[in-house]
Structures are given as C-alpha cells and as structure tokens.
Write a protein that binds this DNA or RNA. Sequence first.
DNA 1: TAGGTTTGCGACTATGAGGCGATAACCGCT
DNA 2: AGCGGTTATCGCCTCATAGTCGCAAACCTA
Lengths: 209, 209
Amino acid sequence: MRSGKLEVLLWERALKPFAGSWALPGGLLGEDETLEESIRRHLAAKVDVRGLSHLEQLETLSAPGRHPETRIVATAYLGLVPAGSDPSIPEDTAWHPVDDLPELAFDHLAAVLAARERLRAKLSYTNIGFALAPPAFTIAELRGLYRAALGHDLSATNLQRILLRRALLEPTGEQRPPGRAGGRPATVYRFRNPRLEVTDQFAVLRPPG
Amino acid sequence: MRSGKLEVLLWERALKPFAGSWALPGGLLGEDETLEESIRRHLAAKVDVRGLSHLEQLETLSAPGRHPETRIVATAYLGLVPAGSDPSIPEDTAWHPVDDLPELAFDHLAAVLAARERLRAKLSYTNIGFALAPPAFTIAELRGLYRAALGHDLSATNLQRILLRRALLEPTGEQRPPGRAGGRPATVYRFRNPRLEVTDQFAVLRPPG
DNA sequence: TAGGTTTGCGACTATGAGGCGATAACCGCT
DNA sequence: AGCGGTTATCGCCTCATAGTCGCAAACCTA
C-alpha cells in the first residue's frame, strides 16, 4: 500500500526475452530449497525480506509457451508488506499500481490478477489485514487500506464493528490527536494476531448503497 | 463418493521407492503440455477421464527431500467424479476412504488432506456439489453426499432452502417413488450449472445443534 | 380405513451486516 | 467563554439469511 493505492513491486527486464517489459521478482529454484525458501532468497536480492509480513502460494503456471525459449514452470506467490514501511529497492525495480500496470513479461499479468483476487477474498474472511496495515492505526486509516485493496468504499462503522466482533482488533490504549480542522481524537488499534487466522464468518465486505 | 463415504483413488506402488505404499495417480510433466493436460493424460491411463466432473489445482509441493532419490517438484490437483459412476479401474488401483487411509507414499497425505479441505470449503460457497452429485437426485440423497464430504450432519430443510435460494438447483419435474415403507414421493433435482460457480454468499454450512 | 413413514413447506427465532442519526471530543474564531 | 465546524464513536433500527420446529402432504402396508 503506497499513497492510498495497492501496488506491486516490478522489475524491469534488461535482457531478452521481454527486454524492457516489467516482471515479477523471482528466479530459478535451487537444488536444495523449497519454493518458499527460493522466493525469499530471490526477493532478498531486491528488498529487505524482514519487512515481508505475509507470504503464501498462489497457482503454478505451466503453459508450454509461457517462456519463448525454454520450458519453465513457475509457481506464483503472494507476498505482502505493511503500509508505511518504505524499503529501499534497487534501480531497476519500481512500485506500480495494480490498477494501472505497464506491459508485463511472460504470463505475469495472470499472476498479479490472481494475487489481487486472493487478497480481496481473504480480506473478508481472514485477518490478513494485519499484513497490509502498519503496527498501529485508526479505523479511518484502516478503512483507507481496505478501500484500496477491495476496490470499493465501505462503511467505517461497519468495518470497525465487524473486526471488533471477530476479535481481530484490539485498542492500543493510545489516541491519535485530531488534525487542523479539529474533530474527536481517534482511538488507535492494532491487529491482535500477527499471523494468518481464518474466521468462521465468511461474509463478504460489501460496498455501501 | 462411494457407499456414503468420501473416497480417493490410490495406486499401489510396485517399484521402489515406497514399494507397497499407496500413491496418488500422476506422473511426470511432458515437454509440450500444461500441468492440467498432464494430469488428464496420466489419469486416462487409470480411469475413464470423461467421468471427471471437476479438476482444479491445489498446491505445489517442493520439499527437497520429498523424493528420496531425485528432486521432484509436484503439483497436486483435486479431481472429482460424480457419485454413482463406477468407472472400471486397473488391478493395482483401489478406492480408499479419506477418513481411513493406508500408508501413503511421499507427501501425498498432505495433498489428500489439502484436497479434502478445499472441497469442504467450496461446498459452502460454490456449486461444487454438481461435481459430486449424480445427474439427478433427491434432497435426501444430496444431503447424504454433503454429510459425507463435510464430515458432519446438516439439516435437509436448510440445505434445500440454501441451494434453492442461491438458484443452484432446479427441479427436473420428475418424482422419486417412495420405498417399501411408504412416504411422500421426493421431487428430483439437478444442478442448474454444470460448471464451477462462486456464490456471493460465503456462509458456511454448519452442523445442527 | 387406520397407522406408519418420508418429504415438503411455512412460521418462527437467532445472528450478523448495513444504515442512520445522536453524541462525544476536539478545533478555530469571535 | 461561547459558537459553529469537524471527525470519531456508539446505540438503535432494519434487513437478509441461516437454522429450528412442527405440521401437512403424499405415499405405503395391513
């Protein structure tokens, strides 16, 4: 989450094939590592992986022609970084809004779209917001994150009640002072559990109206 | 679904490694095929794949030691066959109840458990029942399938209303005559759409009481 | 025709999402 | 100090849907 938008870290390819196109970070699987270890290893070459708040497997892409030269089967992962953390990234990488992507190499567009779908679905029935949110936040700030990730607006009242009822949030005890225009100070919350947790409620978060 | 239980087709390994253990059907990915094509090809060697009512990718298993001799990364798929269809299978394969599995080769137990979880979850928010049910059925029969797949009982009244409200079922117009003991004849239903369809309702089907 | 059995359906309850307005708690300005 | 403006929070209401219960429908056998 950067400046109110859901963004993805892309890497500009210098070599053929797809030179000049943007690609997801990744690389070849080593002899003695799992896929997740491999993802973390390749990602560590680009960003500080300690900032990674969540990592989960998506689907495996296997179309024979997906790489124009050799046969490569790729497994896509969804990795999340909390909002506000601004890790330094190399020259050849950049954040791109998911809603306004450049031309992507290979079938990486499918992977990005699958990732967004997975994220949207899990926002409704898990506590995956913890991976998107900073350590502490107000309801209004959290609403902004959910709005950007879900792609539609939602009621702050409703969001607060749902997350509190599911016991996913807890107040830190602190308050956020109001801005210039005044207003009641907002209570600061944090996610109770910093690991993925599935709710027994499956109700989707809907747009108002 | 066989005799009221959720079962999985396994293949008894003759060769090492894991000789004598049971394994999921499958095989190596060919040079010019997708994973799904490969699954269908290997499956065709065991059963009539035309009976396959659903096929979807699960997760990709990549632990370096999962094969004791070579390095093999495997992608697990969930395939479903409608109840009542009894395809002929070779000598070295057999159906095993998912709740009472023999010793499985490699990490195939993890794949089977993941498949069962995926199926249970999708029964609640998709029409995946179509892949488990025969072409036509009564509510009581469908309830039996759901009970076996979900692992718990559920109310026939509730199941009927939910599936009808979501417009997943439609009556065929026929009726099933009652058995020996009598009783009101049951209306026969079928699934409206023979392809996977995600409901906007995410409520989980709960056990009674 | 009486009694038993299974299915179907309508009425009721419970729960949680979503909407709306009142109130709380701050600001800046007069 | 008082007042209008602003933002956050909370309580109450409505609505949709899941789940429960019991009765009526429609069949059987004796």
